[in-house]
């Protein structure tokens, strides 16, 4: 296997896993939306950030994000 093939598999995994984690986090956030208590407020913030993290990971896998810009 060449390096680019491995990279493609990794990217595919990141995209697929990212979609799954993103939707699981959003659904968990929706289910927890009305729970009271200090700990649950923090869980909600953290689930939202988790969804955001999954989103950027999947976008990085999809070549949308990533530092392929302006290096020397």
């Amino acid at each position: 296997m060449t390096g680019s093939m491995i990279a493609n598999i990794e990217r595919a995994g990141a995209i697929a896993g990212g979609i799954v984690v993103f939707f699981v986090s959003v659904v968990a956030l929706k289910n927890d939306w009305k729970t009271p208590g200090l700990d649950n407020q923090f869980f909600k913030i953290m689930l939202a950030l988790l969804a955001f993290g999954a989103l950027i990971a999947l976008l990085a896998g999809a070549h949308v994000l990533g530092n392929f810009g302006k290096a020397a």
Binding site: A57, A60, N67
Partner: peptide, 23 residues
């Protein structure tokens, strides 16, 4: 430059563990 593809995959592994922990 750092390998973005592998890191993206590895990040998804960690974020997935966050979701399983929640459940």
């Amino acid at each position: 430059r750092l390998d973005v593809a592998f890191a993206a995959w590895n990040s998804v592994v960690l974020f997935g563990s966050g979701a399983t922990m929640h459940y």
